[in-house]
Structure formats: structure tokens, C-alpha cells
Design a protein around this nucleic acid. Structure first.
Length: 270
DNA sequence: ATTGACTCCTGATGGC
DNA sequence: TGCCATCAGGAGTCAA
């Protein structure tokens, strides 16, 4: 389940291998991703990869005519391999590069996506409605506080809303709320500005730390199997239901919130 | 307008 | 051992 840190580490990992390379061929082995892979992506054939950008959890592989947009969904991963290496099950999409290597998208569940964004065209809907990046100044405590007014929804659901801030998935929503000492079910409009200031910092810290850890873990992306470990060693609450709170030793509890596993400490989070 | 439920899919897991 | 049933979950879409 790639979250924003994994996507960013993926971006950092693949960029040196594919930037400035010419795309010799584009192979669609299975077009049935979340949406059918549009044939427009083939426009990138013969063009040079100018760079790899990230917006939310989308990766944008830029060429002079447009960008190939990749989303890894829940089970997707990218690998950089020699073009003649064995095709694995669920290798759905591939960029064949002039230097004899390929970028392959593997995604068992096919919740991921491959899309095309033409240069000069209005941004596709998926990207145009997104909130700010969490690690930029555009995401700040006053914005978070202002948007939360009159919102009855649980704060955890609130911070996972892409219009509020992008890239806060289930794992890091749990972690950030624990770090901020806020109960995940508390109504978004029942939290003070001071607490949102704390929460904003915690979201930034949790994500930045995970990217940092991932960056050091993942030394050679060509050998990575696409699963950079999810930095699970640093998680305080997610996946730890029933285990003692790292702060007060009381047992962590798990509930469902918006169909998602929500783990927290009843004592430390109010 | 908001909010919550549903949906896509396969692999991992557990019960019998 | 095998065969189910259940669950995980990003995020768009739909319905209340």
C-alpha cells in the first residue's frame, strides 16, 4: 500500500535511471487498470524523459508532448530492470528505454492507473481538484483549521480527504493523530487552532521522517522489488492493536472508521 | 452541500 | 491438503 513517502522514494529511486533517456517503446500488457490505459500514452514513444515529478501519490513522467501519469494504487510497484529480463505476473505496463533498461509497472490488484496529460492541456480532473502538498507551506495550520469549521466528520477522515491535504493515507493518518495526541473520532470542528497547529506539524514530521528513512533504506532501486519495507519499524500505532502504547503502556485499541483500520491509545489521544 | 457506503481486484490468512 | 470465506485498502462514484 504505497503511501506518499513510498511514492516519493520511488520517484527518487527511478529518476536517475530513466531521466534523459529516450523511450524506444511502450508496452501495454494489460490495459485493464482502474481505468483503461488510454492509447494517448503511446504519444511518448520516441521522446526523451525530461524528469519525474510527483503530485499527491501520482507520478508524472514528463516528455515534451506530455506526461505519463502513474498511480500505484494499493499494490502497485515500479522496478527498473534490463529490458530482456523475465516478465513477471502482473507486469502490466512497461517503458522500454534506449539504454537497454525498462521501467515496469507491476500491480496485482490493478487499483493503480496509467494516464496521459498532454502539454498545454488543462490538467485532468484527477489532478485539478487536489489540495496542497503536505510538505509545502501551502499546507499550514490556519488552512487546516479554517477548512475544519462546521465539519462534523471525524478528524481522521478529514485529514485523509484529498481536498484538505493530499498524501495522508491510512497509516500516516493514524500515526500523525497519535503523535498529536488527538482522538481519531473527534469531530473536525471540535478541535482548537492550537491542536491543529500541533497536528499540522505532526503530519509534516511523520511524512518527512518516512521519506528520509525510505531514502536511506533504498540504496539501489534496480534491485528493489518495489517494496521498500514501508518503514514499518517506525510505526507507533498502525498494525499494533492490542500491543502496549509506546508512551503509556496501555493497550492500543482498533476501531473501524470509514471502513478503515483505526488504531489509537484511549489514554494518550483525546 | 455533506457525508457515508460502495466499488474495483488479488493475495494473504484462517477455519474446517 | 484443499477449499472456501474474509479481509486489506486509495480514492472515485454514487446515494441518502
Amino acid at each position: 500500500m504505497p503511501e506518499l513517502p513510498e511514492v516519493e522514494v520511488t520517484r527518487l529511486g527511478i529518476t536517475p535511471h530513466i531521466a534523459d533517456q529516450t523511450i524506444d517503446d511502450i508496452i501495454i500488457r494489460n490495459p485493464n487498470m482502474r481505468w483503461p490505459i488510454p492509447s494517448e500514452v503511446l504519444l511518448a514513444k520516441g521522446l526523451v524523459i525530461q524528469g519525474v515529478e510527483r503530485r499527491a501519490k501520482y507520478l508524472l513522467i514528463a516528455t515534451e508532448l506530455g506526461s505519463i501519469i502513474l498511480h500505484l494504487g494499493m499494490s502497485g510497484s515500479l522496478s527498473v530492470v534490463p529490458t530482456d529480463s523475465e516478465i513477471k505476473k502482473h507486469d502490466h505496463f512497461e517503458l522500454v528505454l534506449a539504454n537497454g533498461i525498462s521501467l515496469r509497472l507491476n500491480d496485482p490488484r490493478r487499483f493503480g492507473a496509467v494516464l496521459w496529460q498532454a502539454v498545454g492541456q488543462q490538467a485532468i480532473d484527477l489532478l485539478s481538484h487536489l489540495g496542497p502538498e503536505p510538505l509545502t507551506e501551502a499546507f499550514n495550520d490556519t488552512r487546516l483549521y479554517d477548512m475544519s469549521r462546521k465539519k462534523k466528520t471525524a478528524v481522521k477522515t478529514f485529514i485523509m480527504d484529498n481536498k484538505v491535504v493530499v498524501g495522508v493515507g491510512n497509516i500516516y493518518a493514524n500515526e500523525a493523530l497519535f503523535m498529536a495526541g488527538i482522538h481519531p473520532k473527534r469531530a473536525a470542528d471540535n478541535i482548537s487552532l492550537a491542536r491543529y497547529q500541533k497536528l499540522t506539524q505532526c503530519i509534516k514530521t511523520v511524512l518527512a521522517k518516512a521519506i528520509e528513512q525510505g531514502g536511506t533504506t533504498l540504496k539501489d532501486f534496480t534491485k528493489a522489488d518495489g517494496k521498500p519495507g514501508y518503514f514499518a519499524q517506525s510505526l507507533n500505532v498502525y498494525g499494533r492493536a492490542g500491543l502496549p502504547c509506546v508512551s503509556c503502556q496501555r493497550e492500543l485499541v482498533e476501531i473501524r472508521l470509514g471502513q478503515r483500520a483505526t488504531v489509537f491509545c484511549k489514554h494518550c489521544q483525546t
